[in-house]
Write a protein that binds this DNA or RNA. Structure first.
Length: 449
DNA sequence: GAATTCCCCTG
DNA sequence: CAGGTGATATTG
């Protein structure tokens, strides 16, 4: 299989996970693009692939004006709309006293477009976003300072105490003085829909997650998945309700720092794997030799909220059954999870590091691995999952599993997995032909077991 | 919501 | 290169 063939698969799917790894040049127009470019897909006979943008430039190609392949990855131009939304939420947070139209002016875009774009991307209007942020700031002042209510109102961008009172009641149901007295936990309930590209095999994803659900963290119903999460300094909860007719999830999100909304949405997209082009992926999988009638329609990669959690689950799951593993994870959560207001969260590395983990009835060496892993995560917060290989007790299987579930890498082939090995004996499969979607092949084979 | 801009295909 | 098509991003 040639590299070109892999590039072709990747570009046809427009999967963002391949963004930045190569560029597509169109011979007929002498323009080159990123694999995610929204423009009409060029015919294969007209394209040529490059690993670096400069190579394309040298061959006389001009960068596309839509996807800006000439800009540096993760630069402002590269992120396109995302940058505008990011700047917008930053401005809304920094300038509570500015009106929406003044913010739009600062952004250099029309007010109408600002509203539309913001609501479209975040499911919350700029005004709601700003109001909730103001309320949180006011609450902070009420608790942490002895400013008068009038002063708090002024500082948080409300013109007077009356205005603060009205808005605070609207968001929290309480007056400012009540908020000051009680240690009340404020959360905004955000609702929006998140589209996916059909087919989407919801029962499979649901059952997969249900089998591995950690009590008090995750809740699963016949048509919904919910869990608590921590992202940076933000704590929250989300529930995704599947709607197969409208091809979307109905999302409920609660969080205590609205500035994280974008990141939270990105991660939910990943956990539910809504962006994958399943149709194209399945075509690719059929080339590997897996019998077509055995291929389950619409299988997605069930994600874990973040790599650290995936790592803990993987380590505690080494060599034992799923059920036994979840028991251990559950003990870890009960013992060390961060509990606030009846709600439990998966423990951070910091919290795991405070414990000797003796409450886990596992082999000492396994416990050692978990300690070493946690320490590693604390010391190298920006390390990639591949770097975990240097930790004693973490081998290729654990790393691969964590990448598949914790970062939703599309091309992880778990050929060291026992279940997969058994399946390979049953069918004559050449996984090479499933590239770059071998994670999906792994899922398919697990599903058949 | 129409109009414009951009990209790609075909002849 | 001209003329036609689909798909954004953005404005009025």
């Amino acid at each position: 299989m040639t590299d070109n063939f892999l590039y072709q698969q990747a570009r046809l799917s427009r999967d963002p996970r391949f963004d930045g790894s190569f560029y597509v040049a169109v011979k007929t127009t002498k323009i080159f693009c990123r694999p995610i470019c929204p423009a009409t897909l060029p015919l294969e006979k007209n394209v040529e692939y490059f690993v670096m943008a400069q190579q394309a430039m040298q061959q006389g190609y001009r960068p596309c004006l839509r996807c800006r392949p000439d800009s540096a990855p993760s630069s402002n131009a590269w992120q396109g709309i995302a940058t505008t939304v990011k700047r917008a939420s930053r401005l809304l947070h920094d300038y509570h006293e500015l009106s929406i139209s003044e913010i739009a002016k600062k952004l250099g875009i029309g007010e109408r477009y600002f509203r539309q774009l913001f609501k479209d991307q975040l499911g919350v209007s700029p005004k709601q976003f700003q109001l909730f942020d103001q309320i949180l700031f006011a609450k902070h002042l009420l608790h942490q300072s002895n400013l008068s209510i009038e002063q708090v109102a002024q500082s948080s961008g409300f013109n007077n105490a009356r205005r603060l009172q009205i808005q605070m009641k609207k968001v929290t149901g309480l007056s400012p003085s009540q908020v000051r007295q009680q240690q009340h936990h404020i959360e905004q309930d955000i609702q929006l829909s998140m589209a996916f590209r059909p087919p989407y095999n919801w029962p499979h994803l649901r059952d997969f997650l249900a089998l591995r659900a950690v009590p008090n963290i995750e809740q699963i119903e016949h048509d919904s998945y919910a869990r608590t999460f921590i992202l940076g300094n933000c704590k929250g909860w989300f529930q995704a309700r599947y709607d197969g007719h409208k091809n979307h999830f109905k999302l409920h999100i609660k969080l205590n720092d609205i500035r994280y909304l974008t990141k939270v949405l990105r991660n939910i997209e990943r956990v539910l794997d809504v962006a994958a082009d399943i149709q194209g992926i399945q075509q690719q999988l059929s080339l590997s030799g897996i019998p077509l009638e055995q291929l389950t329609e619409g299988l997605r990669l069930p994600g874990i909220w973040e790599p650290f959690e995936a790592g803990c689950r993987a380590i505690l799951g080494q060599q034992i059954s799923v059920k036994a593993a979840i028991n251990l994870v559950s003990q870890l959560v009960d013992e060390l999870g961060e509990k606030t207001d009846e709600t439990n969260y998966f423990p951070s590395p910091e919290r795991v590091a405070t414990s000797d983990l003796l409450f886990l009835k596992i082999a000492a060496s396994r416990r050692q691995t978990l300690v070493a892993f946690t320490t590693f995560c604390l010391q190298h917060p920006n390390a990639s999952i591949d770097d975990w290989l240097s930790i004693k007790g973490i081998g290729p299987w654990t790393v691969a599993y964590a990448k598949l579930r914790g970062s939703s890498s599309p091309d992880i082939w778990l050929d060291t997995d026992l279940v997969i090995k058994n399946q390979l004996d049953k069918f004559s499969i050449n996984a090479e032909y499933a590239r770059p979607w071998r994670s999906y092949l792994t899922l398919q084979l697990w599903n058949l077991a």
